[in-house]
Amino acid sequence: MLARPVAMTGMLGAAVGVPYAIHNPPQDWPDWSSPPAASAPADPAAAPAPVATAPPEVPGPQYPTAGAYGSPMPLEGGGFYPVEQVLRMDVTKDWVYRNWPRKSTGLAEPGLFGVRVPLVTGTGMNDLAGSLSYYFNATGQVDKIRFRGTTADTNRVIALAQRQYGLAWQPPRTPGEQLLQSREGGKVVGQLRTFPEPVLWNTKPHGSYGVDLEFNRPGSGHYVTNDTPKLQVPPDTTAAAAAPAEAAKAEKPPAPAATSPQLQNAKRPDFRWPN
């Protein structure tokens, strides 16, 4: 019977204390009585510029002089490069060496020094991914640029080839091919080929089209070489092996006629075979 009076007393205290606490809050309580002030619209010009973060350090082999060869960039490259900034002939070997920590040198091209690097221009559908090769002449100028890779949308690279290198549309040589060329004295100095990949995946749209691109500096004496695939037909070994046998057969003298008594009797006009 004591629980009910105690509960009634607690409810009476709450009814008195809660309104008092609301109307007489402590000094450190927030003021909820007035509506919040409307926030001013953000000024894009006053917003701080995004701070570029340095690429993570890639640990390398540990040896006494390892610190002299450390690189802050990943092994594959220094990031994304807009296609307009890399498909140029005014770059130098030093520029290539600074921007890519991994490169292949000494490519097979007579009279030119080649440097090949991995290239990813971004993550958009019209970006490129593949290998880019620069070929430098003896004076350090780029005489040739080659790119082999893939994309999901060919419009961007086609527009660049037309605008920057003057390539024009040509009749396709195979179904599904897009072909653009520029010529010098009847020879092809620039060429861009795009073609659907043999296998297309919905989960890998960036690999929908193959891209085969080559630019040569006009007047450099270097041109595009289109290697037409040829069907390799093996020699007919059966006919070659049968030829000596046929020759030996032709040289073999005919067998002498049989002179058995039975055959001689068969030549007689009155000869009859036994029944």
Rank of each mutant, 00 (worst) to 15 (best):
L2G: 11
T9C: 12
W29M: 11
P30E: 08
P30I: 07
S33E: 15
A38I: 13
A38T: 13
S39Y: 13
P41S: 13
P44T: 09
A47S: 13
P50R: 07
A54N: 12
A54W: 13
P61W: 12
Q62C: 09
A66R: 13
M73C: 10
P74Q: 14
G77P: 02
G78H: 06
F80I: 00
E84I: 06
D90P: 01
Y97L: 10
R98I: 03
N99T: 09
N99V: 02
N99I: 03
R102S: 15
K103G: 01
S104I: 12
S104P: 00
S104K: 14
A108N: 03
E109I: 02
P110W: 07
P110K: 01
F113W: 13
T121D: 02
L128G: 04
S133C: 06
Y134L: 02
Y135W: 12
N137C: 03
T150A: 07
D153I: 05
R163M: 01
Y165S: 01
L167P: 04
A168T: 11
Q170H: 10
P171V: 02
P172V: 04
T174S: 13
S182R: 15
S182N: 12
E184F: 05
G185E: 08
G186L: 09
G186S: 07
K187M: 09
K187T: 03
V188G: 10
V189Y: 03
L200A: 11
W201E: 12
N202T: 09
N202Y: 12
T203R: 08
V211A: 01
P218K: 04
S220V: 07
P235M: 06
D236R: 06
D236W: 05
A239P: 08
P253F: 07
P256W: 08
T259P: 05
Q264D: 09
N265K: 15
N265W: 15
K267I: 00
P269E: 08
D270E: 06
W273K: 14
